[in-house]
Design a protein around this nucleic acid. Structure first.
Length: 638
RNA sequence: GGGCCCGUGGCCUAGCAUGGAAAGGCGCCGGCCUGCGGAGCCGGAGAACCCGGGUUCAAGUCCCGGCGGGCCCGCCA
C-alpha cells in the first residue's frame, strides 16, 4: 500500500471523483475545469465553483444542487455539502476525515508535512551572497531569511537541495576595503570583525571619493561644479558621521591617502588579486575572511547554514572559467567589439520570441546589450556571474534558484541569455531568478558604501531584548529567559519578513518587525506552547481517536491540519514562502479559539478527552514542523 | 526616453496564475480571567479594491491608456 502523505489530497480526489461521476451523468465533459479549492471562512472547508462548469446561471444553480446532494451522500470524507448560488460548499466529516488525519499525522510525526514531488529534482539555491566588505544589513536579512526558508520548503517537497553563498571577492569594492585595511590593521577594536571591516570600507570610500571629487572640481566648468559640490557635501556629511564613530581610524586612512594616490593603489590591488599575486591574495583574503567570520556569527545565531561558500575568484577567475565563457560566447557570434570593449549582443538574441519564451523573458521586457570586457581587458561582474552559473550547473543540478534582489532582473536575464547563446539551453531554461524587493528605511537611503544601514545584528539584538522584557513581565524564570528570548525575538523578525510577499517593497520600522501580537511569530509560538502545556498535563491520558470521537467543534481544526502538506507542496512548487506563515497564523488562531471554547483534558467521556488530546498533539506537531520549515525555533515555554 | 515591480478600510497585509461570495492583522469602540497559560477569546464600526476605458452573463483579478511610489537601463557590483 502506498504511503499517504496528505489527507487533503485524498479528500480532494474523493470529491473530484464523485463530482466527475455526476458531471458525466449530466453529459458534461469538463473534468479539466473541475477545481476544488478552499471555501471562504464561514462557508465551509472546500468549495466547487459550478459556474466554471456550466456557464449558464440557471444550469449552474441546478447542477450545484445535484452535486451537493451526490457529495453529501456519496463521499465518505464529506460531512455536509450545500449548494449556495453556483457554488457547492463542502464541510469535511469530522469523524471519518479526523481519523484519516490522525492516522497520517501520527504515522509521519516530526516529518508530517513532508510531501514528496512526483519528480524530485536536484536544486541549487544561492542566497544572501553579501559582499564581504560590510556587515549584513536588514536587506540582506530579508534575502537570508527567505532563501533559507525556501531551501527548507523545497527539501520538504522531496527535492535534494544544496545551498550556496557566493563570496564576491573580486572587484573594486573589495580593493577599497583592502586599501583601508592596510592602513589600520594594527588598531584593536572591540567589535565584530564584519563591523570593523564595514567601518573601514565606509571610511575609505568617503576619503577616496572626497579626494577624487575635489580634484575633479579644479578643472570643472560651472555647471559640473555645482553638481560636484552637491555630491561633495553629501560625502562630507558622511565623513563627519564616520569621524564621530572612530576618529583615530578615520585619521589613519585620511593621512595615508594624502601621501599617495589611493585610487592608483586600489586598482593595483584589484589587478594583482585577479592575477593571483601572492601579496594581494593574502591582503584581500584577510579582509574577506574577517568579514565572513562576522557573517557566520550572525548566520549561526539565525540558524542559517550553507553547504558551500563559493569564492568568485576561485570558481570563475583563477580556474579559467571566465576565459572559457568568453571563448564560447565569441564562437556564438553574439559578441562584438566596441571601442575596445567586448559586448554581448543580448538584445539581438532577445529579438527571437522563441528564445524569450524559453527563458521566461516577457515580450515587452526591454533587453540591452552587455559589456563583458572593459577596454583595459578586465572583466565585469556579470561576466563572472555567467561563469559562475556554468559552474553551478556543472555540479550536476537540474535547477538553479538565485535569491537575488529585484533590481537585478536585467542582469539575471542577461545571464540566462548568455547561457543560451553558449548552447547551454537546458541550463538557461532552468535558472530561476527568485526576486525580492528592497527593504527601505524611512527617511534615509541605506548604503553600505556610506556606512548607513541598520545591521542585521542590531535588529536581532533589539528583537531579543524586547522579547526578554516581555518574558520577564510574564514572570519567566530568568535562567531560562535568555535562551527563550532568543527564539522568540528571532522568530518575530523571521515571521515578519516571511509573511509579506517578496515582490512587495518592505518599509522597515521597528514596531512592524517587532510585532508580538496576532499574526506574528510569537503568536504562533504561543499557541504551540499552550498546546505543549496541555500535553504535559495529560498525565496518564493517552491520545487516541475512537470512531465517533470527533465532532463538529473539531471540524475546522481537522481540516486545517490535513491541509498542511498541501500548503508545503504549493509553497514549494510555486515558490511562495509566504503561504506558510499565513497558514500557521490561521492554525494558531483556530487552536486558540478551540482552546477557549472546549475543555480538552476534562472532556467527558474519557474517549472524547483522548481524541481532543490527539487533536492537541496534532496541532503541536504541525505548528512545530511548520515553524521549522521557516527556520523559526519552537520554544517549550514562554 | 524605454522597461520591471508595487498601488486593496485610518495603517499594514492576503486574494490576481485558473474572472464568479472582498479575507486577516494593527488602531478604534464594547464585552470575557473561581477553567488546560489573557502574547488569548467574542462582538462592533470602518473598503466607490489608484483613475479612465474595454472584454465578459460576471472584473480586485484579464486587455488598453493614464496617475502615484520604488527600482533598472554597455565599460559599478
Amino acid at each position: 500500500m502506498e504511503r499517504v502523505y496528505s489527507a487533503h489530497s485524498l479528500l480532494v480526489s474523493e470529491v473530484s471523483s464523485v463530482a466527475k461521476r455526476v458531471l458525466s451523468e449530466c453529459g458534461i465533459e469538463a473534468s479539466a475545469e473541475l477545481v476544488v479549492e478552499r471555501a471562504p471562512p464561514e462557508r465551509g472547508d472546500l468549495t466547487v465553483n459550478v459556474y466554471r462548469l456550466a456557464r449558464d446561471e440557471k444550469k449552474a444553480v441546478e447542477l450545484a444542487a445535484q452535486l451537493s446532494e451526490a457529495l453529501a451522500r456519496g463521499a465518505r470524507l464529506v460531512g455536509a455539502a450545500r449548494s449556495e448560488g453556483g457554488f457547492v460548499n463542502i464541510e469535511v466529516n469530522p469523524d471519518t476525515y479526523g481519523r484519516l488525519v490522525w492516522k497520517v499525522v501520527s504515522e509521519m510525526g516530526e516529518k508530517y508535512g513532508f510531501n514528496p514531488h512526483p519528480r524530485p529534482l536536484r536544486i541549487l539555491v544561492e542566497h544572501t551572497s553579501a559582499n564581504p566588505v560590510h556587515p549584513l544589513h536588514v536587506g540582506h536579512l530579508r534575502n537570508c531569511v527567505v532563501g533559507d526558508a525556501l531551501a527548507r520548503i523545497l527539501r520538504a517537497r522531496g527535492h535534494s537541495v544544496e545551498v550556496h553563498f557566493y563570496v564576491d571577492d573580486v572587484g573594486l569594492q573589495m580593493s577599497y576595503a583592502a586599501y583601508g585595511f592596510e592602513k589600520v590593521k594594527g588598531l584593536k577594536r572591540d567589535v565584530k570583525p564584519d563591523h570593523f571591516i564595514g567601518l573601514v570600507y565606509a571610511v575609505t570610500n568617503a576619503v577616496v571619493n572626497i579626494r577624487a571629487l575635489q580634484k575633479k572640481r579644479e578643472h570643472a566648468n560651472p555647471d559640473e561644479r555645482a553638481r560636484i559640490d552637491r555630491e561633495l557635501s553629501d560625502w562630507l556629511w558622511v565623513a563627519k558621521e564616520l569621524m564621530e564613530r572612530d576618529e583615530e581610524l578615520f585619521a589613519a586612512i585620511a593621512e595615508a591617502a594624502k601621501s599617495e594616490d589611493p585610487l592608483e593603489r586600489i586598482y593595483a590591488i584589484n589587478r594583482a588579486y585577479e592575477a593571483g599575486e601572492k601579496w594581494a591574495v593574502s591582503l584581500v583574503r584577510e579582509v574577506a575572511e574577517r568579514c565572513i567570520e562576522g557573517f557566520k556569527q550572525t548566520l549561526d545565531r539565525l540558524g542559517v547554514a550553507f553547504d558551500s561558500w563559493d569564492w568568485e575568484s576561485e570558481v570563475t577567475v583563477w580556474n579559467g572559467l571566465t576565459a572559457e565563457v568568453l571563448r564560447r560566447l565569441r564562437e556564438s557570434g553574439f559578441l562584438r567589439e566596441d571601442k575596445g570593449a567586448l559586448v554581448f549582443e543580448a538584445d539581438r538574441l532577445a529579438e527571437d520570441p522563441e528564445v524569450r519564451r524559453r527563458l521566461a523573458i516577457p515580450a515587452s521586457f526591454s533587453v540591452t546589450s552587455l559589456v563583458l570586457v572593459r577596454s583595459d581587458g578586465t572583466t565585469l561582474y556579470a561576466t563572472r556571474d555567467i561563469a559562475y552559473s556554468v559552474w553551478k550547473f556543472r555540479r550536476g543540478v537540474d535547477k538553479v534558484i538565485n535569491v537575488v534582489g529585484a533590481q537585478q532582473a536585467l542582469e539575471q536575464a542577461h545571464v540566462r541569455l548568455a547561457l543560451y547563446a553558449m548552447g547551454y539551453v537546458r541550463e538557461a531554461e532552468n535558472m530561476v531568478h527568485f526576486a525580492y524587493e528592497m527593504v527601505t528605511l524611512p527617511g534615509t537611503k541605506m548604503s553600505g558604501r556610506r556606512g548607513r544601514f541598520v545591521s542585521a545584528d542590531e535588529l536581532i539584538e533589539e528583537a531579543v531584548r524586547r522579547a526578554g522584557e516581555e518574558l520577564a513581565k510574564r514572570g519567566l524564570d530568568p535562567a531560562e529567559n535568555r535562551e527563550i528570548a532568543e527564539k522568540v525575538g528571532i522568530g518575530a523578525v523571521k515571521f515578519a519578513m516571511l509573511s509579506v510577499s517578496p515582490s512587495r517593497p518592505l518599509t522597515f520600522t521597528w514596531e512592524r518587525v517587532l510585532d508580538f501580537e496576532r499574526n506574528s511569530g510569537p503568536f504562533v509560538q504561543y499557541a504551540y506552547v499552550r498546546a505543549r502545556s496541555v500535553l504535559r498535563k495529560a498525565g496518564s491520558l493517552k491520545p487516541e481517536v475512537a470512531e465517533g470521537a470527533f465532532g463538529s467543534e473539531e471540524r475546522k481544526l481537522l481540516f486545517l491540519l490535513g491541509y498542511f502538506p498541501e500548503v508545503v507542496a504549493r509553497a514549494a512548487d510555486e515558490l511562495k514562502v509566504e503561504l506558510l506563515p499565513q497558514y500557521l497564523n490561521e492554525l494558531a488562531l483556530a487552536f486558540n479559539k478551540y482552546y477557549d471554547e472546549v475543555p480538552i483534558l476534562k472532556a467527558e467521556p474519557e474517549e472524547k478527552a483522548r481524541a481532543r488530546l490527539a487533536l492537541t498533539l496534532m496541532v503541536a506537531v504541525t505548528l512545530e514542523n511548520g515553524m521549522r520549515l521557516l527556520g523559526i525555533e519552537p520554544p517549550s515555554r514562554m
